Simulated scan of single mutants.
Amino acid sequence: MTQKLEEKALDFVVEEMIDVVQKSKDEIFHISEEARSEHEQLQIELNETKEKVTKHINDGDALEQKVRFSRQRLSEVSKYFDRYSESEIREVYENTHAMQTRLAMLRQEEKILRDKRDELERRLVTLDQTVARSEGLASKISVILTYLNDDLRQVNEMIEEAREKQEFGLKIIEAQEDERRRISREIHDGPAQMLANILLRSELVDKTFRHGTTDETIGEIKSVRKMIRSSLYEVRRIIYDLRPMALDDLGLVPTIKKYIATISDYNDIQIEFKPIGKEQRVSQEYEIAFFRLMQEGLQNAIKHADASLVKVKLEIGTNTISLVIKDNGKGFDPAIKREKSFGLIGMRERVEMLNGTLSINSMIGEGTTIVIHVPYNLS
C-alpha cells in the first residue's frame, strides 16, 4: 500500500514538472512567433524608409544644384543692379529664398528618416536576438522534456502496459466505426447529391435540346460539365482523405506541402507551412498520425474559425515531433464545453495514443493556436 502511494506521489511530481516545462516551451513558441511577425512588419517598414531616404537625398542633391545656380544668378543681379528691373530682382530674390527654404526642409526630413531607419535597424537586431534566444531555450527545454518523459515512462511502464493494450483494441474499433460514419456522410452529402443533381440537369439538357435554343442547350451542358468536375473533385478528395499515396512514396513533409497547396487553392485561403529540421522520414504510424492531425486542424480552421490565414509549423527533432497550427479566425473560449466537437476530441485521443500532449490556446476574436508535442527517438 505504501509503495503504491509513493509511486502515485512520484508520478504526480513528475507530471507537474512536465506540465510546467511544457507550458514554458509553449510560451516560448508564442514569443518566437510574435517576434517573427513583428520582424516581418519592421522589415517592410525599414525597406519603405530606406526608399524614402534615397528619394530625399536625390531630391536634395538636385535642389542643391538649383540653389547654387540661383545664388550665382543672385550674385550677378546684385553686382549689376542697374541692369535689371525691380520685378526681375524681386523674382530672383524670392526664388532663391524659396529654394533655400525647401532645401532646408528636405535636409531636415532626410535627417528624421535617417534616424528612423537607424532605429528600425536596431530594433530588427534586437528581434533577431530574441528569436535566436527563444529557439535556443526551446531546444534546451525539449531536452529537459525528453528526460522527464523518459523517467515517467520508466516508472509507469509496467503499470501502463496492460491498460494500454486493452484500450488500444477498443480505440481501433471506435476509430473504424467513426471513419465509416464519416465516409458515409461525405459520400451522401457530396458525390451522391451531386450525381442526383447531374441526373436532373441531364433531363433538363434533353428538354432544352428539344424545345430550346442552341445557346441555352450549350449553357446547360456547361453547367452539367461543371457539376461533374466538382463531383470528381469530391470523389478524389475522399479517396485522398482515406489514404494519400504520396505519404508512402514521399514522406510526411512533401505530402503536407502538397495537401496545403491543394486545400489553400480550393478554399481560397492563405496557408503558410514552415518545416523545421531535416526533411527525413519517420515511422509510418507517426507520419500517418501527424498528417491526420494537421488535416483535422486545418479543417477546423477553415470550417469553424472563418480564418483568412493559417500558419502550420512542423518540427522533427531528435527526440520530439512538434506541430503548431495557428489561425487568425474568430476563436473560442476553451473553458466552455462545446457540443459535437469531435474533431478536437479525435485529435486529443490520437495524440494521447502516442504519449504526446496537445494544448489549445484561444480567445474569442483572437484566433486559435494548437500545439502538439509527441516524443520520438530518431536513432
Rank of each mutant, 00 (worst) to 15 (best):
I173S: 06
I187N: 08
N149E: 05
R102G: 04
S142Y: 01
L148W: 04
M105A: 11
I141P: 04
D128N: 07
T130C: 06
S134E: 02
R181V: 08
A132T: 14
E109H: 05
R114S: 01
A98N: 03
Q108W: 06
R102P: 00
K165L: 04
R182C: 02
T130M: 11
H97E: 08
N95G: 09
L170W: 04
L137K: 05
T96S: 07
Y147R: 13
T126G: 03
E121L: 02
V143Y: 10
A162Q: 12
I159E: 14
L106K: 02
D128R: 06
M99L: 15
L127D: 02
L148V: 06
V125M: 11
D150L: 11
A104C: 01
R182P: 00
E121R: 00
E167M: 09
T96P: 00
I144C: 02
H188S: 15
E186M: 14
I172D: 05
E167D: 14
E186V: 06
Y147H: 15
I144Y: 05
M158I: 14
K165V: 05
L137E: 12
R181H: 12
L103R: 11
D178N: 10
L103V: 07
Q166F: 00
V155E: 08
Q166I: 08
Q100L: 04
A162V: 13
A175Q: 12
R122V: 04
D178M: 05
T130F: 02
R163A: 12
Q108S: 14
A138G: 14
L152Q: 10
E186K: 14
R182A: 02
Q176D: 09
M158T: 14
N156I: 08
R163W: 02
E179F: 08
M99V: 01
E157R: 14
E179W: 13
V155D: 09
I173Y: 11
L148F: 08
R107S: 04
D178H: 03
E164R: 15
S184C: 07
R185A: 10
N149F: 00
K140D: 14
I144D: 15
D178Q: 08
Q176S: 08
Q129L: 10
L170K: 13
I144S: 13
T130R: 09
G169Q: 14
K116D: 02
L113V: 02
R102H: 03
E161Y: 08
E119D: 15
H97M: 07
L145W: 02
N95T: 15
L170T: 12
D128Y: 00
S142G: 15
R182I: 04
E177N: 01
I187C: 01
E179Y: 11
L113E: 07
D128L: 02
D115I: 00
I183D: 04
N149A: 05
R181G: 02
E110V: 05
A132S: 10
I112A: 10
T126K: 10
L137W: 07
D128T: 06
L120Q: 08
N149G: 10
E121I: 01
F168Y: 08
I187Y: 05
M105H: 13
H188P: 00
I172K: 13
K140S: 11
Q108Y: 03
E164Y: 04
A98T: 05
V125F: 07
L120R: 07
